[in-house]
Design a protein around this nucleic acid. Sequence first.
DNA 1: AACTTAAAACTTGTATGGTAGTATGGTTGT
DNA 2: ACAACCATACTACCATACAAGTTTTAAGTT
Lengths: 228, 228
Amino acid sequence: MEWIIDQPSNGTSVSDYVYEVLKKNIVGFNVKPGDRISENEISELLQVSRTPVREAFIKLSKEDLLYILPQRGTYISYIDLDEVEEARFIRESLEKAVIELATKEFSEDALFMLEQNITAQKNKIEKKAYSEFLELDEEFHKTIFQECNKGKTWSIIQQVNSQYKRIRILSFIANINWLQTIAQHQAIIEAIRNKDTEKGLKTIGEHLKKLNIEKMELKNKYPEYFKQ
Amino acid sequence: MEWIIDQPSNGTSVSDYVYEVLKKNIVGFNVKPGDRISENEISELLQVSRTPVREAFIKLSKEDLLYILPQRGTYISYIDLDEVEEARFIRESLEKAVIELATKEFSEDALFMLEQNITAQKNKIEKKAYSEFLELDEEFHKTIFQECNKGKTWSIIQQVNSQYKRIRILSFIANINWLQTIAQHQAIIEAIRNKDTEKGLKTIGEHLKKLNIEKMELKNKYPEYFKQ
DNA sequence: AACTTAAAACTTGTATGGTAGTATGGTTGT
DNA sequence: ACAACCATACTACCATACAAGTTTTAAGTT
């Protein structure tokens, strides 16, 4: 498969540019788990020097999207279901804590944004624009965090979420139900509006547990992407 | 005040070495918030090249212990109480989620480790060895996470916790009560042993909220370390 | 054919050189 | 006295060179 190489947007550093390109291609499985990449190879591919490539590698290795073996090589990580589970655990813990805040206080403006987001989500689904749908999904949750003044918390989730994202992509390729996802988003909005903390917590739990069920299914379907 | 420069321990990379030295000196207030440091200055001080220094800077900036202004300079961050509060929020959410697991299943061996840790804690307090006490404190919580198979979760806390750590150091310099801390640790052990989830959650809440009370007190005492 | 071994071709880690952008301090013009 | 300007000395960023270690390759030996 071919690499997707967007042009660097203005204002970003070379280092960030390399990071973005690599992340996109890893999460999108354009480079496959187990593949070996090298600083030289990427620096040539993107026409930049090794330094920013190296910095991007380090950053990605912290997200466990790749692992660096000193003096040996750098490899794309396999999806580790134990890690995915822990990422889910972290995300569930933090999302629940935030939904508890959101069901106590939430501005009308932000609620409106969430609703607009959902209509956009439906649109993308009809057009079968899955990756754009996933972006909106992320945006949805991000909005809740920001409204609760927990932007840093969201960035932590982002960091842990990389592994998780790859599974979601597979899940969409495998064509598993996304209509349920939208229904859950709607339920979250209702919970916030009615200040129904109980319902909010329950929905978030289901929302994230859904993927838990799919995990084994996906591992059977794409064993070459998984650890062991 | 003088910089504390330990020798590099064998096996660690130069980059990690620089990171450790810088972190220790920032958290310990040997370099003060607002101070300017540069790649050149540090590379000369530690007798290494600029590359590993730069990598350490990037890592520390992700923990918000310093901030990099491109082409302008790198500065030690002031303590931002909003950020500290969010770090506390994250930690509380994750610690509660883990204590819930711990009060359901926990090995006898690990419980023993926790008890041994507490006796060691008392020791350090008597000797007024505060920084060593803080290390044991961290170890205590880490043990719980690891026993619950949530090592990654702990590492997330570590990352977010740097800001928080600086406050704890100030708190100890200002001589605020640590006996209460030990009592709370003991209460956590009891909760785990008796599988008393309710008590566990409550204690964790108090444990972390304690610092919340001290924050304003500390800001008044050391205004030069805080933002605004 | 199977095993040794040495050299070449990789890898990442570290050092150093060069560049663009920013702050600063002094000088000049008014 | 004060503002405009310019030279200088910084900064972090990126490119390149070198070092240290690993893997691959292939020739040489038994």
